[in-house]
Design a protein around this nucleic acid. Sequence first.
DNA 1: GACTTGAGTTGGTTA
DNA 2: TAACCAAGTCAAGTC
Lengths: 242, 242
Amino acid sequence: MRIIVATCSAEYSGRLNASLPYAKRVILIKADCSCLIFSELGSYKPLNWMAAPCTLKERDLSADEAERSEAIDVNDEGHTPCKILDVHAQKSSDVLTVKLYDVEYDISSDLGLDPGLVKEGVEDQLQRYLAEQIERIGQGSRLVRREYPTAIGPVDIMAVDSEGHNVAIEIKRHGGIDGVEQLTRYCELLNRDPLLTPVRGIFAAQTISPQARTLAEDRGFECLILDYDEMKGTENSDLTLF
Amino acid sequence: MRIIVATCSAEYSGRLNASLPYAKRVILIKADCSCLIFSELGSYKPLNWMAAPCTLKERDLSADEAERSEAIDVNDEGHTPCKILDVHAQKSSDVLTVKLYDVEYDISSDLGLDPGLVKEGVEDQLQRYLAEQIERIGQGSRLVRREYPTAIGPVDIMAVDSEGHNVAIEIKRHGGIDGVEQLTRYCELLNRDPLLTPVRGIFAAQTISPQARTLAEDRGFECLILDYDEMKGTENSDLTLF
DNA sequence: GACTTGAGTTGGTTA
DNA sequence: TAACCAAGTCAAGTC
């Protein structure tokens, strides 16, 4: 990893064109030549970047005043670059050009391999909890199976309600319109099967957008808000019973 | 901006739990205390981070050997931390804890305000070009309007073809299944209006996934590939005529 | 390898 | 402020 702190300007050309005016920023260059430009602004996303695989060409302009003056453009506000980084994508014509002016730091450190991040618990967890606590969709309900396979993909949970009717459940962390569309496709398909029909649909999520709720209810689906902490608590109290 | 290069381990607890084992990494701490942890892996996304607004507590363990030995846990592989960074989110209970072992660099630099990124050319641009060059959907077509309002949201472009039939156009940079669903909803709604029906649907994008194309054509929609550069070129040659 | 879906998504626009 | 939608999305899993 190479870390540069410098006043710079940058131009990106690829799926879009984007430019960064002259300012002081932090530039990270990884071992694979991918390049990230940060300011104090924003969250974890860099202002501009080049993804690997890519190649980096570095031109030092300090020795060649003629070339150096050529490199000045209208965005430099009269400043003179001392270095140009040209980062080219290998699989496309994307280019990121960074001009460096005053370099405050330029340090390198070999980080070596990273063991990587260990994650635990997202949508999968919601599905697991609801499968374990299937009566949250109605007393007397029974689980058929998680990831119930169909021709157009797996239904998150299939269950049977107290009246013996099949229930297809679509689970999302946040329920939007496309989740309702997904549930619609499943129910449409499942209801074509005379052995399964009638199949009810339940749209279950931690949060559901108003538009999605309206659409879901309009299509006869029930909306179910899932409380992650409550479900987690229920799991624990279940465990303490034994 | 503060830049630390050090061997470290980290724990995040929030919407998920995630942990980073002992390894050398780069840690950026912005002026707003938001914190990013990078390795040579991955693209622009840090391995772990804390978004602003948040607070940072820094504990130096070098003076207190008792505390220091307490801070050793099973993931440290026998190493002894010299510093702990505790980053707490202000609006939730999210916590990121970073333990530092050997610190190679710890530098700070005030970057100041950033003028920000200037972008050009995304979906909005595609919509603008197609509106200007509406005959790309068929000779004799006329533009009705961009962002044609309906009860379920604006249709990207409404037009009338050479036969006087209404045409609803959904534009995407990349056309996937949900784009087809979107177009389906619009056409369904618009065709309920006796003043508008029959309304044709066109699915226009720079790229269209095979599944989306199949679904779109199955529903009677035309698929139109948009060439950004060609449309941009057409705009320019239009201009040079005058 | 192409495609689909989720993400601690982030970020911008509009009602 | 809340909801909705696009992103140079990225990344993981599946076919």
